[in-house]
C-alpha cells in the first residue's frame, strides 16, 4: 500500500477548484477506486457517477491527467508516479457537481434521430435471416457504451460548442449502426447532412483514439456516412437511380 496524491476538481456550475487528497493505493487500483476511497474516508459528498466498475456501462467518464478516460479502466500504476494525478469532469458538458456533468443533450440528440425501421420479417415467426459477415460492421458500432468520451474530445463540440448543429461522433456511430443493419429500411442521409451536421467533422480521428471500446469511429462509421451524403447529395447518377426506385429524399 502506497500513498498517492490526487487533485480532484470539486465545485458546481458557479465554479470550483482542484482539491488535494492523499490516498492509500492498493495493488491493481484504478482511478475510480481512489475516488471511492476519498468519498468513503475524506469527502462523503464527493459527486461521481459510476455503475459497473468493469468498463461496460460508460458512466464514470472523466478527464484523468487531462485525457478523457473511464475512471474504472484507468490503472494508477500506468500513470506517471512522480506527479499528482488530476481528475476533472468532462469539459464539453456543463458541470452539475464535482466530477458529474450534465449529459442530457446527448439523450435529446438521439431521440431526434429517425428510428430503426425493419423490413417485413423473412419468416412467419417474425425472424430475419442475416449473414454473420453482413452484421459484423453494425455489431462493431453496437459495442458503444455511451460513455460520451468521443463527444468530450471532439473539437467541434469541445472548442467550438456547436452542440446545436452537430450531433457528434457518438450519434454518427448510432446512425451508422442503423444504416448498415441489413434489415433496416430507413434513410437518414438527408438528416445527417442537415440536422446532424456531419459535414463539420474534419476527420481528425480524436474520437477513435479515446474510444474505450476500440470502435474505429472515423474510418468505419463517419467516413462511410460522409460518402453516402456526398453520393446522394451530389452524384447526379445516384440521384437519378434513387428517383427511379422511388426512394429519393
Amino acid at each position: 500500500m502506497k500513498t498517492t496524491t490526487f487533485k480532484v476538481w470539486q465545485g458546481n456550475s458557479d465554479g470550483g477548484e482542484l482539491k488535494t487528497y492523499e490516498v492509500e493505493v492498493d495493488q491493481g487500483y484504478v482511478v475510480l477506486d481512489a475516488i471511492h476511497r476519498i468519498q468513503a474516508e475524506q469527502a462523503n459528498d464527493l459527486a461521481v457517477r459510476w455503475n459497473c466498475k468493469a468498463g461496460k456501462c460508460g458512466s464514470c467518464s472523466a478527464e484523468v491527467n487531462g485525457s478523457p478516460k473511464l475512471m474504472c479502466m484507468t490503472r494508477i500504476d500506468e500513470l506517471p508516479a512522480d506527479k499528482p494525478i488530476t481528475v476533472e469532469p468532462m469539459r464539453t458538458f456543463p458541470v452539475v457537481k464535482d466530477l458529474v456533468t450534465d449529459v442530457s443533450w446527448n439523450y435529446e440528440v438521439k431521440a431526434s434521430i429517425k428510428r430503426f425501421s425493419p423490413k417485413t420479417a423473412d419468416h412467419e415467426d417474425g425472424s430475419w435471416d442475416m449473414d454473420q459477415y453482413d452484421v459484423e460492421r453494425p455489431q462493431e458500432f453496437r459495442k458503444c457504451i455511451e460513455c460520451f468520451l468521443c463527444q468530450d474530445v471532439c473539437h467541434v463540440l469541445r472548442d467550438h460548442q456547436l452542440h446545436d448543429r452537430f450531433a457528434g461522433p457518438r450519434h454518427y456511430v448510432y446512425v451508422a449502426n442503423m444504416e448498415m443493419n441489413p434489415i433496416d429500411t430507413g434513410d437518414r442521409v438527408a438528416e445527417l447532412r442537415e440536422e446532424l451536421g456531419i459535414g463539420y467533422c474534419n476527420i481528425t480521428k480524436c474520437c477513435t483514439k479515446v474510444c474505450p471500446e476500440g470502435i474505429t469511429i472515423t474510418d468505419n462509421a463517419i467516413i462511410p456516412l460522409k460518402e453516402r451524403v456526398v453520393d446522394q447529395s451530389y452524384d447526379p447518377l445516384a440521384r437519378l437511380i434513387k428517383l427511379v426506385k422511388g426512394s429519393g429524399d
Partner: peptide
C-alpha cells in the same frame, strides 16, 4: 422466451448468427 428474443431484432438488436443466418 423465443418470441420475446425474436422481437428484439425487429427493434434493432443484432445477435450473432448461425451459418444459416439464424440467431
Amino acid at each position: 422466451a423465443p418470441e420475446r428474443v425474436r422481437e428484439l431484432e425487429g427493434w434493432g438488436a443484432i445477435m450473432d448468427r448461425t451459418p444459416d443466418g439464424l440467431i
